Simulated scan of single mutants.
Amino acid sequence: MNLQQLERELLPLTAYAAPVIFGSVLLEFWLNRHDDEHRYESQDFWSSVGIGLGSLIINGLLKTSVFGMALFFFEIIPWRIETGWWAWLLAYFIIDFCNYSAHFIAHKQRVWWATHVTHHSSEHLNFSTAFRNSWTQHLKLVFFIPAWASGINPVVLLTCYQINLLYQFWIHTEMIGRLPGWFEFFFVTPSHHRVHHGSNDRYIDKNFGSSLIIWDRLFGTFQIEDEKPVYGLTKPVESFNPVYLNFHVWADIWRDLRHARSFRAVWGILFGPP
């Protein structure tokens, strides 16, 4: 398999889903147009749109690099996993676990938090919040190397990666309440993700799952929604500027690094808690 073949075989699922995504945002906005809780706020919404557009451009520019990375590791490993239904299932579990791991570490180490903080910058939770994907989030692709090196066909892995990404859109809403217990036991729901976006003390660093909540249950990071979430960062960012929202933590890290006087200090600045 080569890069051109991979690009031909991989369906652009995110492009196919775009009408549903934008239609859902418009429907949610219309249903909340007289909402007393102001789930949609004009400046916040346009900030999310600006961040989302920047992310789309960057995704387009880096698409070939992402494909190349997946193909590179697939080609250098000596084993192959035959493509069958069970390989698709295994691929999805691996992708989802890599996502959980990357998400968990992004909340624990400052340099990775810089690639994720943008997503938590809104003090609202609605479908447009899902557009707030950091412009530097591709740095976290290193956490997916176990998937690329699994021996599973890259087309299968990258398809599962797209499905996993699309799943995360619908959980960014307050319009959907609690779902049946069996579903909430296995899958991430809007209720679970409202907890993750909450800055309440009991909600901080909880529910890292992207589509499967089982990892949080297994590793002790699960929290049920038992009080109203307060959205946003513990230290709110007083800006709606997409560029600032993407790079303010990077700027803080650079400022601190300039004053570091030892390797230990540099390590602490980069990999200490946010």
Rank of each mutant, 00 (worst) to 15 (best):
M1C: 04
L3S: 10
Q4R: 15
Q4T: 15
Q5R: 04
L6T: 05
E9A: 05
E9Y: 04
L10Y: 11
L11I: 08
L13H: 14
T14Q: 15
T14Y: 09
T14N: 12
A15P: 05
Y16D: 05
A18V: 10
P19S: 06
F22K: 00
F22L: 08
G23T: 04
S24H: 03
S24L: 08
E28K: 07
F29V: 10
W30D: 03
H38G: 08
H38Q: 14
Q43T: 07
Q43W: 13
S47I: 03
S47T: 07
S48P: 07
V49C: 03
V49P: 06
G50I: 13
I51P: 01
I51R: 05
I51T: 04
I51W: 00
L53E: 00
G54W: 10
G54L: 12
G54T: 05
S55F: 14
L61N: 11
L61A: 12
L62P: 02
K63I: 04
V66E: 15
F67P: 07
F72P: 07
I76G: 13
P78T: 10
W79M: 09
I81N: 10
E82R: 10
G84E: 11
G84C: 12
W86H: 08
W86L: 06
F97S: 02
C98K: 14
N99C: 10
H103V: 06
I105W: 13
I105Q: 12
K108E: 11
Q109C: 11
R110F: 03
V111L: 15
W113G: 00
A114K: 12
T115N: 15
H116C: 10
H116Q: 15
S122Q: 12
H124D: 07
L125V: 07
N126H: 00
S128G: 03
T129N: 12
F131Q: 05
F131P: 06
N133R: 15
N133K: 14
T136S: 12
L139Y: 13
V142Y: 12
F144M: 11
P146S: 04
A147F: 11
A149L: 11
V156C: 03
Y161H: 10
Y161W: 11
Q162T: 07
L165E: 09
L166M: 13
L166H: 13
Q168S: 13
I171Y: 02
I171N: 00
T173Q: 03
I176A: 05
G177I: 03
P180I: 00
E184M: 03
F187D: 03
V188L: 00
T189C: 02
T189D: 04
T189L: 06
S191M: 12
S199T: 08
D201Y: 11
D201V: 05
D205Y: 07
K206I: 05
N207F: 02
N207H: 13
F208C: 10
S210N: 14
S211P: 08
L212Y: 06
I213E: 01
I213W: 03
R217N: 03
G220A: 12
F222S: 01
Q223W: 07
I224P: 02
D226Y: 04
E227A: 08
K228S: 09
P229Y: 05
P229C: 01
V230C: 10
Y231N: 13
Y231F: 15
K235Y: 06
P236C: 10
V243F: 09
V243K: 06
L245Y: 03
V249H: 09
V249P: 05
W250Y: 13
D252T: 08
R261F: 09
R261E: 14
S262I: 01
F263S: 00
F263V: 08
V266A: 08
W267H: 06
F271P: 12
P274G: 07
P274V: 06
